[in-house]
């Protein structure tokens, strides 16, 4: 089934004190290709600025802009129309020999590396490696890994923060989608399964009515490579993502897909106000 979704993502910063200039990058444009068709997308910024777009190393669309007039707020609105197709069911035929071959390891080297977000202690990593690899197929291994994450992490907001690593979340035992994703990535990579981090949007309900607008979420999930990239959402225990998921950025970890980065000169900012609304149009 194909859905057509309209997504509006608004980010508001209020600075306490005048800001003289700022340089920023936005990664909020849904990807093209795969199970997604991007029909249209716009990003508007206030105070107004000229926008510069490019595609980054990981294929994510970036919008860059700088401001040079004194300002005390920043308002970014990203809206898009996306057609999302349901991907076909699993067809993973890859076996451990293929997955762990030198060839695969080299081709996906980037998604097998540990990063500062996705490093686990050596004992945990080696234990996970043994457990996952003792399964008959990589697909079974993946499920065992997901169970392990589910056992060790429970969903709770406000405990971890945007810079928390997988190891920190594991110690606390609680976290949000970002932590689930990082821990899942760390877990699978330790067993040699290439993993990548995905940022995007999730439609909240199961089957929305056309035209009805809902409060959506900016979300993060992961992809595992088992002969092809398979999307899965560890925080919602979804082993195959469907048409409710709209992907924006992909990378090794959060650091590669951060939706908004930048520096500014002058007053300090409070945390941003973020709203996401998703409407099914078809």
């Amino acid at each position: 089934m194909t859905w057509r979704l309209e997504i509006t993502h608004r980010t508001m910063y209020q600075y306490n004190g005048p800001v003289y200039s700022s340089y920023n990058e936005v990664r909020m444009t849904p990807r093209r290709g795969g199970s997604q068709n991007l029909l249209s997308s716009t990003i508007t910024v206030s105070p107004s600025a000229s926008l510069y777009g490019y595609i980054d190393y990981f294929g994510t669309a970036v919008t860059a802009f700088d401001l040079h007039r004194v300002h005390d707020y920043l308002d970014i609105a990203a809206s898009s129309h996306v057609e999302v197709l349901t991907t076909k069911g699993p067809e993973h035929t890859i076996d451990w020999n293929n997955l762990l071959s030198d060839d695969t390891a080299d081709n996906f080297a980037e998604f097998l590396m540990t990063t500062k977000y996705t490093t686990l202690g050596p004992e945990v990593a080696s234990e996970l490696k043994d457990r996952i690899r003792s399964e008959p197929t990589p697909q079974d291994g993946l499920e065992v890994g997901l169970e392990w994450v589910e056992e060790h992490l429970s969903y709770e907001r406000g405990i971890t923060h945007v810079r928390s690593s997988a190891a920190e979340a594991l110690t606390i035992g609680k976290g949000v989608c970002q932590d689930f994703s990082h821990l899942t990535i760390a877990c699978m990579r330790s067993a040699g399964i290439p993993m990548r981090y995905v940022s995007g949007y999730l439609y909240p309900g199961e089957s929305p009515a056309v035209g009805e607008s809902s409060v959506g979420e900016s979300h993060a999930w992961v992809e595992a490579w088992l002969g092809r990239w398979i999307g899965l959402d560890p925080s919602n225990h979804v082993s195959h993502i469907d048409q409710r998921y709209v992907a924006v950025g992909k990378g090794r970890d959060y650091g590669d897909v951060s939706p908004f980065t930048g520096i500014f000169y002058g007053g300090e900012s409070s945390s941003p106000m973020v709203t996401v609304s998703i409407t099914r149009r078809q």
Partner: peptide, 13 residues
């Protein structure tokens, strides 16, 4: 020469 700050990141849910 005015103090610089990095834009505070959004927390993803």
């Amino acid at each position: 020469s005015i103090t610089s700050h990095t834009q505070r990141l959004e927390v993803w849910i």
